[in-house]
Protein backbone atom coordinates (compact mmCIF):
# COMPACT_ATOMS: atom_id res chain seq x y z
CA UNK A 1 0.00 0.00 0.00
CA UNK A 2 1.25 3.45 -0.85
CA UNK A 3 0.89 6.11 1.83
CA UNK A 4 1.12 9.02 -0.54
CA UNK A 5 -0.21 9.24 -4.04
CA UNK A 6 2.21 9.45 -6.86
CA UNK A 7 2.03 12.43 -9.14
CA UNK A 8 -0.11 11.47 -12.10
CA UNK A 9 0.88 12.13 -15.66
CA UNK A 10 -1.41 12.14 -18.62
CA UNK A 11 0.13 10.42 -21.55
CA UNK A 12 -0.65 11.55 -25.05
CA UNK A 13 -0.25 9.26 -28.02
CA UNK A 14 2.22 10.86 -30.40
CA UNK A 15 3.41 9.42 -33.67
CA UNK A 16 7.15 9.47 -34.11
CA UNK A 17 7.04 11.46 -37.35
CA UNK A 18 5.10 14.20 -35.62
CA UNK A 19 7.96 14.79 -33.24
CA UNK A 20 10.27 17.69 -33.90
CA UNK A 21 13.65 16.00 -33.90
CA UNK A 22 15.81 16.58 -30.86
CA UNK A 23 13.05 18.01 -28.72
CA UNK A 24 11.34 14.80 -27.76
CA UNK A 25 12.68 11.36 -26.98
CA UNK A 26 11.01 8.03 -26.52
CA UNK A 27 11.81 6.41 -23.18
CA UNK A 28 13.12 2.88 -23.89
CA UNK A 29 11.62 1.64 -20.66
CA UNK A 30 8.06 2.98 -20.51
CA UNK A 31 7.86 3.85 -24.23
CA UNK A 32 6.39 7.23 -23.38
CA UNK A 33 7.35 10.25 -25.43
CA UNK A 34 9.09 12.66 -23.15
CA UNK A 35 10.14 16.27 -23.58
CA UNK A 36 13.92 16.18 -23.71
CA UNK A 37 14.25 19.35 -21.69
CA UNK A 38 12.36 17.70 -18.88
CA UNK A 39 14.81 14.79 -18.88
CA UNK A 40 17.82 17.08 -18.85
CA UNK A 41 16.33 19.06 -15.97
CA UNK A 42 15.87 15.84 -14.06
CA UNK A 43 19.54 14.75 -14.44
CA UNK A 44 18.72 12.38 -17.26
CA UNK A 45 15.81 10.63 -15.57
CA UNK A 46 12.50 9.85 -17.28
CA UNK A 47 9.79 11.91 -15.53
CA UNK A 48 7.21 9.20 -16.24
CA UNK A 49 8.92 6.03 -15.06
CA UNK A 50 12.20 7.12 -13.46
CA UNK A 51 14.26 5.25 -16.04
CA UNK A 52 17.81 6.59 -15.83
CA UNK A 53 19.11 7.58 -19.27
CA UNK A 54 22.81 7.47 -19.98
CA UNK A 55 24.51 10.76 -19.34
CA UNK A 56 27.85 12.04 -20.57
CA UNK A 57 31.02 11.58 -18.54
CA UNK A 58 31.18 15.33 -17.93
CA UNK A 59 27.61 15.40 -16.63
CA UNK A 60 28.40 12.46 -14.37
CA UNK A 61 31.53 14.16 -13.14
CA UNK A 62 29.56 17.31 -12.32
CA UNK A 63 27.09 15.23 -10.31
CA UNK A 64 29.74 13.44 -8.27
CA UNK A 65 32.72 15.71 -7.85
CA UNK A 66 33.04 19.17 -6.28
CA UNK A 67 33.45 21.84 -8.95
CA UNK A 68 36.99 22.43 -10.21
CA UNK A 69 38.57 19.67 -8.14
CA UNK A 70 38.94 16.98 -10.81
CA UNK A 71 42.38 16.11 -12.10
CA UNK A 72 42.30 13.69 -14.99
CA UNK A 73 44.76 10.79 -15.04
CA UNK A 74 46.19 9.04 -18.07
CA UNK A 75 44.35 11.19 -20.57
CA UNK A 76 47.05 10.41 -23.10
CA UNK A 77 46.25 6.70 -23.47
CA UNK A 78 44.71 5.79 -26.81
CA UNK A 79 43.78 2.46 -28.36
CA UNK A 80 46.14 0.72 -30.71
CA UNK A 81 45.05 -2.01 -33.08
CA UNK A 82 47.10 -5.02 -31.91
CA UNK A 83 45.31 -7.53 -34.14
CA UNK A 84 45.05 -5.26 -37.18
CA UNK A 85 41.45 -6.34 -36.94
CA UNK A 86 39.48 -6.27 -40.12
CA UNK A 87 35.90 -7.42 -40.38
CA UNK A 88 33.22 -5.71 -42.37
CA UNK A 89 34.56 -2.57 -40.75
CA UNK A 90 38.13 -2.34 -39.45
CA UNK A 91 38.85 -1.55 -35.81
CA UNK A 92 40.89 1.44 -36.93
CA UNK A 93 37.84 2.88 -38.70
CA UNK A 94 35.63 2.11 -35.69
CA UNK A 95 38.01 3.99 -33.42
CA UNK A 96 38.01 7.06 -35.64
CA UNK A 97 34.22 6.99 -35.86
CA UNK A 98 33.74 6.61 -32.11
CA UNK A 99 36.24 9.29 -31.20
CA UNK A 100 34.38 11.68 -33.44
CA UNK A 101 30.95 10.64 -32.20
CA UNK A 102 31.79 10.81 -28.50
CA UNK A 103 34.58 13.39 -28.44
CA UNK A 104 36.38 10.92 -26.16
CA UNK A 105 39.64 9.10 -26.64
CA UNK A 106 38.30 5.85 -25.23
CA UNK A 107 35.57 4.40 -23.06
CA UNK A 108 36.72 5.48 -19.61
CA UNK A 109 37.59 8.74 -17.90
CA UNK A 110 39.81 8.41 -14.81
CA UNK A 111 41.15 10.80 -12.27
CA UNK A 112 41.07 12.19 -8.78
CA UNK A 113 38.67 14.67 -7.26
CA UNK A 114 36.88 15.85 -4.16
CA UNK A 115 33.61 14.17 -3.33
CA UNK A 116 32.23 16.19 -0.48
CA UNK A 117 34.99 16.01 2.13
CA UNK A 118 36.70 12.99 0.56
CA UNK A 119 39.41 12.74 -2.03
CA UNK A 120 38.52 9.85 -4.30
CA UNK A 121 39.96 8.05 -7.30
CA UNK A 122 37.14 7.97 -9.82
CA UNK A 123 36.53 6.09 -13.05
CA UNK A 124 33.59 6.88 -15.31
CA UNK A 125 32.85 4.52 -18.17
CA UNK A 126 31.02 5.74 -21.22
CA UNK A 127 28.72 3.50 -23.22
CA UNK A 128 28.85 5.94 -26.09
CA UNK A 129 32.37 4.88 -26.98
CA UNK A 130 32.19 1.43 -28.61
CA UNK A 131 29.55 0.29 -26.15
CA UNK A 132 31.75 1.04 -23.14
CA UNK A 133 33.84 -1.97 -24.07
CA UNK A 134 37.06 -2.80 -22.25
CA UNK A 135 40.12 -3.06 -24.43
CA UNK A 136 43.73 -2.44 -23.48
CA UNK A 137 43.20 1.27 -22.78
CA UNK A 138 40.23 0.80 -20.46
CA UNK A 139 42.02 -2.09 -18.73
CA UNK A 140 45.22 -0.09 -18.32
CA UNK A 141 43.47 3.04 -17.07
CA UNK A 142 41.37 1.11 -14.55
CA UNK A 143 44.46 -0.78 -13.38
CA UNK A 144 46.43 2.45 -12.96
CA UNK A 145 43.47 3.96 -11.13
CA UNK A 146 43.66 1.22 -8.51
CA UNK A 147 47.45 1.31 -8.36
CA UNK A 148 47.57 5.08 -7.79
CA UNK A 149 44.73 4.89 -5.32
CA UNK A 150 46.73 2.26 -3.47
CA UNK A 151 49.88 4.39 -3.48
CA UNK A 152 47.95 7.48 -2.31
CA UNK A 153 45.60 5.50 -0.04
CA UNK A 154 42.45 6.67 -1.78
CA UNK A 155 39.06 5.00 -2.10
CA UNK A 156 38.07 4.02 -5.63
CA UNK A 157 34.67 4.66 -7.17
CA UNK A 158 33.88 3.38 -10.65
CA UNK A 159 30.71 4.18 -12.55
CA UNK A 160 30.18 1.32 -14.99
CA UNK A 161 28.41 1.45 -18.33
CA UNK A 162 29.58 -1.32 -20.57
CA UNK A 163 28.67 -4.06 -22.98
CA UNK A 164 31.74 -6.12 -22.06
CA UNK A 165 35.11 -6.89 -23.57
CA UNK A 166 36.28 -5.25 -26.79
CA UNK A 167 36.39 -8.09 -29.27
CA UNK A 168 38.43 -6.08 -31.78
CA UNK A 169 41.39 -6.58 -29.46
CA UNK A 170 40.90 -10.33 -29.19
CA UNK A 171 42.51 -12.06 -26.22
CA UNK A 172 44.24 -8.83 -25.19
CA UNK A 173 40.82 -7.54 -24.17
CA UNK A 174 39.94 -10.71 -22.24
CA UNK A 175 43.16 -10.40 -20.28
CA UNK A 176 42.15 -6.92 -19.09
CA UNK A 177 39.62 -8.72 -16.91
CA UNK A 178 42.43 -10.53 -15.11
CA UNK A 179 44.66 -7.46 -14.98
CA UNK A 180 42.04 -5.17 -13.46
CA UNK A 181 40.94 -7.83 -10.96
CA UNK A 182 44.54 -8.22 -9.83
CA UNK A 183 44.72 -4.48 -9.16
CA UNK A 184 41.43 -4.63 -7.23
CA UNK A 185 42.90 -7.44 -5.12
CA UNK A 186 45.96 -5.38 -4.09
CA UNK A 187 43.94 -2.26 -3.38
CA UNK A 188 41.49 -4.24 -1.28
CA UNK A 189 44.22 -6.02 0.65
CA UNK A 190 45.47 -2.63 1.81
CA UNK A 191 42.08 -2.10 3.48
CA UNK A 192 40.98 0.56 1.02
CA UNK A 193 37.35 0.83 -0.09
CA UNK A 194 36.07 0.30 -3.61
CA UNK A 195 32.52 1.17 -4.55
CA UNK A 196 31.14 -0.03 -7.86
CA UNK A 197 28.23 1.91 -9.36
CA UNK A 198 26.37 0.04 -12.07
CA UNK A 199 24.46 2.08 -14.62
CA UNK A 200 22.49 1.09 -17.70
CA UNK A 201 23.78 -1.19 -19.13
CA UNK A 202 26.48 -3.10 -17.22
CA UNK A 203 27.07 -6.51 -18.72
CA UNK A 204 29.51 -9.25 -19.79
CA UNK A 205 33.30 -9.10 -19.40
CA UNK A 206 33.50 -5.99 -17.25
CA UNK A 207 30.86 -7.48 -14.96
CA UNK A 208 32.95 -10.64 -14.72
CA UNK A 209 35.86 -8.58 -13.42
CA UNK A 210 36.22 -5.37 -11.41
CA UNK A 211 32.57 -4.24 -11.65
CA UNK A 212 31.31 -7.01 -9.34
CA UNK A 213 34.30 -6.80 -6.99
CA UNK A 214 33.17 -3.67 -5.18
CA UNK A 215 33.00 -3.71 -1.38
CA UNK A 216 29.71 -2.02 -2.09
CA UNK A 217 27.85 -2.50 -5.35
CA UNK A 218 25.06 -0.08 -6.10
CA UNK A 219 22.96 0.38 -9.18
CA UNK A 220 20.78 3.05 -10.70
CA UNK A 221 17.13 1.98 -11.09
CA UNK A 222 16.14 -0.27 -14.00
CA UNK A 223 19.68 -0.72 -15.32
CA UNK A 224 20.38 -3.86 -17.32
CA UNK A 225 22.87 -5.86 -15.25
CA UNK A 226 24.22 -9.31 -16.03
CA UNK A 227 26.72 -11.51 -17.79
CA UNK A 228 25.14 -13.04 -20.89
CA UNK A 229 22.76 -10.97 -22.95
CA UNK A 230 19.06 -11.91 -22.89
CA UNK A 231 19.16 -12.70 -26.62
CA UNK A 232 22.04 -15.16 -26.21
CA UNK A 233 20.28 -16.83 -23.27
CA UNK A 234 17.08 -17.21 -25.24
CA UNK A 235 18.92 -18.65 -28.25
CA UNK A 236 20.92 -21.09 -26.14
CA UNK A 237 18.31 -22.32 -23.70
CA UNK A 238 14.99 -21.60 -25.49
CA UNK A 239 13.80 -20.50 -22.04
CA UNK A 240 11.34 -17.65 -21.72
CA UNK A 241 13.01 -14.66 -20.19
CA UNK A 242 11.13 -13.62 -17.04
CA UNK A 243 9.79 -10.08 -16.81
CA UNK A 244 12.26 -7.64 -15.35
CA UNK A 245 15.11 -10.14 -15.85
CA UNK A 246 18.61 -8.72 -15.31
CA UNK A 247 17.31 -5.35 -14.18
CA UNK A 248 18.60 -3.61 -11.05
CA UNK A 249 15.50 -4.65 -9.13
CA UNK A 250 15.99 -8.28 -10.22
CA UNK A 251 19.66 -8.47 -9.22
CA UNK A 252 18.89 -6.73 -5.92
CA UNK A 253 16.28 -9.39 -5.18
CA UNK A 254 18.78 -12.11 -6.15
CA UNK A 255 21.47 -10.74 -3.90
CA UNK A 256 24.09 -9.31 -6.25
CA UNK A 257 23.92 -5.64 -5.28
CA UNK A 258 23.69 -3.79 -2.00
CA UNK A 259 21.21 -1.16 -3.06
CA UNK A 260 19.46 0.74 -5.79
CA UNK A 261 20.17 4.44 -5.66
CA UNK A 262 18.43 7.21 -7.58
CA UNK A 263 20.83 9.40 -9.49
CA UNK A 264 19.86 12.47 -7.47
CA UNK A 265 20.84 10.65 -4.25
CA UNK A 266 24.01 9.08 -5.60
CA UNK A 267 26.59 11.56 -4.32
CA UNK A 268 25.12 11.88 -0.83
CA UNK A 269 24.87 8.07 -0.57
CA UNK A 270 28.49 7.64 -1.66
CA UNK A 271 29.68 10.28 0.81
CA UNK A 272 27.71 8.63 3.59
CA UNK A 273 29.24 5.23 2.78
CA UNK A 274 32.76 6.60 2.51
CA UNK A 275 32.28 8.00 5.99
CA UNK A 276 32.07 4.44 7.27
CA UNK A 277 34.82 3.06 5.10
CA UNK A 278 37.61 5.64 5.25
CA UNK A 279 39.49 7.45 7.98
CA UNK A 280 37.65 10.49 9.31
CA UNK A 281 36.77 13.28 6.93
CA UNK A 282 39.07 15.67 8.76
CA UNK A 283 41.94 13.27 8.52
CA UNK A 284 41.17 12.86 4.87
CA UNK A 285 41.00 16.62 4.30
CA UNK A 286 44.31 17.17 6.10
CA UNK A 287 46.01 14.51 4.09
CA UNK A 288 48.82 16.15 2.07
CA UNK A 289 48.10 16.56 -1.60
CA UNK A 290 49.37 13.53 -3.44
CA UNK A 291 52.87 13.85 -4.70
CA UNK A 292 53.19 14.50 -8.41
CA UNK A 293 55.58 11.59 -8.69
CA UNK A 294 53.58 8.43 -8.62
CA UNK A 295 54.58 4.92 -9.42
CA UNK A 296 53.36 3.89 -12.82
Amino acid sequence: MRLFDRKKYTSIKVRKKDLPSGLWVKCPDCNEIVYKHEIDEGKGVCPKCAFHFQISSQERLALLINADTFQEWDADLASADPLQFTGQVSYAAKLVENRKKSALKDAVLCGQGQMGPFTVALGIMNFNFLGGSMGSVVGEKITRLFERALADRLPVIIVCATGGARMYEGLFSLMQMAKTSAAVARHGQAGLPFISVLTHPSTAGVMASFATLGDIIMAEPKALIGFAGPRVIKETTREDIPKGFQRSEFVLKHGLIDMIVQRKDMTSTLICLLGYMTPSAEANAQRPTPNAERPM
Partner: peptide, 25 residues
Protein backbone atom coordinates in the same frame (compact mmCIF):
# COMPACT_ATOMS: atom_id res chain seq x y z
CA UNK B 1 30.29 -20.18 -19.02
CA UNK B 2 26.72 -21.35 -19.59
CA UNK B 3 24.39 -18.51 -20.59
CA UNK B 4 21.17 -19.32 -18.76
CA UNK B 5 18.62 -17.84 -16.41
CA UNK B 6 19.87 -19.84 -13.42
CA UNK B 7 23.43 -18.73 -14.06
CA UNK B 8 22.32 -15.11 -14.06
CA UNK B 9 20.21 -15.53 -10.92
CA UNK B 10 23.24 -16.94 -9.13
CA UNK B 11 25.58 -14.36 -10.66
CA UNK B 12 28.07 -16.14 -12.86
CA UNK B 13 29.80 -12.81 -13.56
CA UNK B 14 30.52 -12.38 -9.87
CA UNK B 15 31.70 -15.98 -9.55
CA UNK B 16 34.23 -15.50 -12.35
CA UNK B 17 35.34 -12.10 -11.06
CA UNK B 18 35.95 -13.43 -7.57
CA UNK B 19 38.04 -16.26 -9.03
CA UNK B 20 40.16 -13.77 -10.97
CA UNK B 21 40.79 -11.73 -7.85
CA UNK B 22 41.47 -14.67 -5.56
CA UNK B 23 43.75 -16.49 -8.01
CA UNK B 24 46.14 -13.55 -7.74
CA UNK B 25 46.40 -14.17 -4.00
Amino acid sequence: AFPGIGGEERHVAEAIAVNLRELFL
